[in-house]
Design a protein around this nucleic acid. Structure first.
Length: 225
DNA sequence: TGCCAGGCCGGGT
DNA sequence: ACCCGGCATGGC
């Protein structure tokens, strides 16, 4: 246990030193952040940014205005983000949830108890574990760690997590190994993405020049205990 | 050209 | 409880 904790602290320090502040998710509003979390599902951020710009241009980036946009028009606006028909429906489902549960106010949602809120979010069509946690962390400011494909790849490749570890397992691994802090989780996740894009690419067995390269895996290999 | 990108749903075993 | 096909655009 202590070893995983140490690995995480060391990894954070190295990545932070190597890459610096990432200013992750500079969304203008919490609602914009939530929209981005849905649009970025299995999509490149550049395409998502374009979709968000289109929504902004159409004045459809608030809970009330987005709710008023017809589904077909919404789908066209977010076309660049891919899976646009699916995502249009997902956005509608989220806005309906926000309006029903929290009067359409993200600030009200951020007052909720995070554990219960997470369950509610997961029940919304189109919101899975990563999207829910992204909304909780980046949209509401809760100290919740977000796991994604990059996080998984880096942790597995460095022997910190097992190949077949599930989402919740990886999330627990980080959350139990670090003191809960939204700003730190924000930066750590951003750093995983950065090193994942930069050095820890799929199909490439070695991570040449990776800031984590000289690190030893935690004691006992992949176990988090 | 093929693979990848800040996943999730629904139906099947 | 897993496993898998489907969803779709834009960049390298």
């Amino acid at each position: 246990m202590a070893r995983t904790k140490d690995w995480l602290a060391e990894a954070y320090r190295r990545l932070d030193d190597a890459y610096g502040d990432q200013h992750w998710w500079p969304g203008e509003t919490p609602f914009e952040v939530a929209v981005g979390a849905i649009l970025t599902q299995n999509a490149a951020w550049v395409n998502v940014a374009q979709a968000i710009a289109a929504l902004k241009e159409a004045d459809a980036l608030s809970p009330a205005t987005l709710a008023a946009v017809p589904l077909g028009r919404l789908a066209r606006l977010i076309r660049s983000s891919g899976y646009y028909n699916q995502k249009a429906r997902k956005l509608k489902a989220f806005v309906a949830f926000l309006r029903e549960e929290f009067d359409g106010r993200m600030e009200a949602m951020a007052e909720a108890e995070p554990g219960g809120l997470r369950e509610k979010l997961l029940a919304v069509h189109g919101i899975g574990p990563e999207t829910a946690d992204s909304i909780l962390l980046y949209g509401c400011g809760f100290p919740v760690f977000v796991v994604d494909a990059y996080t998984r790849r880096v942790l597995v490749r460095h022997g910190v997590a097992d190949e077949d570890a599930g989402y919740d397992e990886l999330k627990e691994l980080v959350e139990t190994g670090m003191t809960p802090d939204a700003a730190t989780y924000n930066q750590f996740h951003a750093l995983f993405v950065r090193v994942g894009k930069d050095r820890c690419r799929p199909r490439e067995p070695r991570c040449a020049g990776c800031p984590l390269e000289p690190m030893l895996a935690p004691e006992g290999g992949v176990s988090s205990r």
